[in-house]
Design a protein around this nucleic acid. Structure first.
Lengths: 383, 383
DNA sequence: TCTGAAACGTTCAAACTCGAACAAATGAGA
DNA sequence: TCTCATTTGTTCGAGTTTGAACGTTTCAGA
């Protein structure tokens, strides 16, 4: 990603507090940062970032190094005051991406690990069972791992095989944002995952309350999240008595720019013909593209087409800002580490925990304002 | 959007409370706000907004920054200081029975409450929505409850109505051994429940490993647990390719002694005719009676009839001792209290947690030793 | 050890935000 | 209707934040 060219902030400047928060997040996600990268990423001068680093260093939240900053290190004398005993356990963490979605999960995990005095070793992997296994194996071989947090690829026979292998590992294993299917007797695996199906349902209900009566769904079938979103969308349609077979469900995985534009036109045409006035779009990156496309084609958002995105990574950058379902990413990491800490402390007597976390719906501009004067329909309870 | 020109309020001025509410809304939507934008949007002076921000900041609801406000941040030192000393909370707990199953749950809850320095008030109730509500209301009225842990009756329309009522209570509510169905938008309810379906599956797999190829199920439909047990039994049969329609599924709810004996004879006759050599019996109280009946009728346990009970309250008392699925009762209470403590400490920012705990299988005499020399069939993994 | 490049910190100015003081408007209750 | 308490708006000096310029320090490689 060309972070040097386009500051992620999309022109909007952040407050210093937000900048420092971002900085800490990057730090927790990557372990270290350079002043130059962050300055470019946030679109401010390097001096500003240096000042931020100094502020954070004064509070003992980072260690200053030449060229950037790192997580507070015991080697850093300026902080070395009241650090209690050394790391009790080491936890390995293997995630499928280090740019999308997962940095915040890692950040949450790192924060909790610090609080629990655990060491955490993060590895990126491909969305691919074989590579997942390779990365895990590497951690097992080279580091001294006491527990493993992993978000494996679960597709196909390889995925199932991988789960069985993980289940049989001699150390505790916790899945993040994944659930073992019931047909695999993975009785030792624990997990913490966002209830995406609930989130999709929440979005549909919100759109219904805004007066929409035909609500479509645009997905990216390459993502492991998509099936859950679709399930939640379908369940909600059923609960609201919206006919499923007349509702739009399109997938735009793996389309590049030209094809995507064509596909979006196709979707808009479908919307027109079916009377669909609202869409739930999975991966808000795609939602941003879709909103852009609507604006280009003169379709008013939210007037003629209301949109809710799913993931809330970049939704706020669009114009108009996109309402989005936000998975509790940092909590997924945090809870996974809590689970691991408890497991390591209590051993086998502790029952297997499997935790669902609910996402929240962030209402912005792309979904509010009822279509065609259908306002005033109020259900008893929503978000 | 021409927010600068036309304040959204359409001329009507809002009360300060509404304004602050709007402010928080914008904040949740965008993560941060600038005084200037909000002032323009609401059509009031910047000073007014600043005063609002100060008010909210004093309550710890926002973090003040130069130029605006952000969601409360851990980097904001002004809040970090204000950690009030272990504000001791009171938790109400309403359970449907004080002699079966629940005493251990309560005991787990009490232990954790003590560790967390919380007060806990337990009330027994009937298995009945109206009485549940009465008991909860009594706690709310007479005691000063900060949170509620409850195992309500969820049958019928009354049950759903009760759930909606619980969801709307102004204090956090955590269900114990219950889950709100997806069709009720009970988006605030949290829960911790045993995965009985998993437990039943574990029992079936165990019996399969012991060589049984026809495995029946005896339930007590008056218990809220029963449907889950049946579901798990059915799923496991499907996974093991045991024909469901040829398998015994009997219910002996509400039978008194004479009728029960007759029914058990009927069940044994069915077993003989279908070649069923193993039974999963829900509520191990009933399993004890069934084993006794088998012994009385000269049916050898486990030689001719293997039995696994469900609940493990009294299973060890039978002769022979009964293998049983043991729900992690004390952990259900313990985790519920942990959840409540975290909720009370972290407030609304914390995402809704929904936790499944897996039961364990306690293998005793009533299920080991393969029938008819079919021993030695070993699957790769079981408990 | 030396040297060039990069990183760092100080100083200053510009732009902007904040809050005190006081004035005006509003609404509740006598 | 009048009074008092509360809320809101205006003005203006004080305070904050940011970035450019430029001299100093640090680092890596020869």
């Amino acid at each position: 990603m060309s972070s040097e060219q386009t500051p992620e902030t999309g022109g909007k400047s952040l407050f210093s507090l937000q900048r420092r928060e971002r900085l800490m997040e990057e730090l927790r996600a990557h372990g270290a940062i350079t002043v130059r990268d962050i300055a470019a990423k946030l679109g401010v001068s390097e001096l500003t970032i240096r000042r931020d680093v100094n502020t954070l260093a004064d509070e003992g939240l980072v260690s200053r190094v030449h060229g950037g900053a790192t997580l507070p290190s015991p080697l850093d004398r300026s902080v070395a005051v009241g650090r209690p005993a050394a790391h009790s356990y080491s936890i390995g963490m293997v995630v499928p991406s280090l740019d999308y979605y997962w940095p915040q999960v890692i950040s949450g995990a790192r924060g909790e690990a610090e609080a629990q005095n655990l060491r955490i070793l993060v590895r990126g992997s491909a969305y691919d069972a074989a590579d997942n296994r390779r990365q895990v194996q590497a951690l097992l071989d080279t580091q001294n791992i006491d527990g493993l947090i992993v978000a494996p690829d679960m597709g196909g026979e390889h995925g199932k095989e991988l789960l069985r292998w993980l289940n049989a590992l001699p150390i505790p294993v916790i899945l993040a944002e994944r659930r073992a299917p019931a047909e695999i007797p993975a009785h030792r695996l624990e997990w913490v995952a966002t209830d995406h199906s609930f989130g999709a349902g929440m979005a549909v209900r919100h759109l219904w309350q805004e007066g929409h009566r035909m609500i479509g769904c645009l997905t990216d079938s390459t993502s492991p999240t998509s099936p859950h979103v679709v399930r939640g969308w379908k369940q909600a349609l059923a609960a609201l008595k919206i006919p499923l077979d007349a509702s739009i469900h399109e997938d735009s995985a793996k389309l590049d720019n030209g094809d995507r534009a064509k596909h979006f036109d196709h979707v808009l045409e479908l919307c027109r013909s079916t009377g669909t006035t609202a869409m739930l779009v999975h991966s808000d990156t795609q939602a941003v593209a879709f909103v852009q496309h609507c604006v280009d084609r003169g379709v008013d958002v939210p007037g003629s087409m209301a949109i809710v995105g799913y993931d809330d990574e970049v939704a706020y950058l669009a114009e108009p800002a996109i309402s989005a379902v936000r998975p509790p990413k940092s909590y997924v990491g945090k809870v996974a580490v809590q689970l691991m800490a408890a497991r390591l402390a209590e051993g086998r007597m502790r029952p297997v925990h499997r935790i669902d976390l609910n996402p929240e719906l962030i209402v912005r501009e792309s979904s509010v304002g009822a279509p065609r004067g259908l306002a005033g329909v109020v259900l008893e309870d929503s978000l």
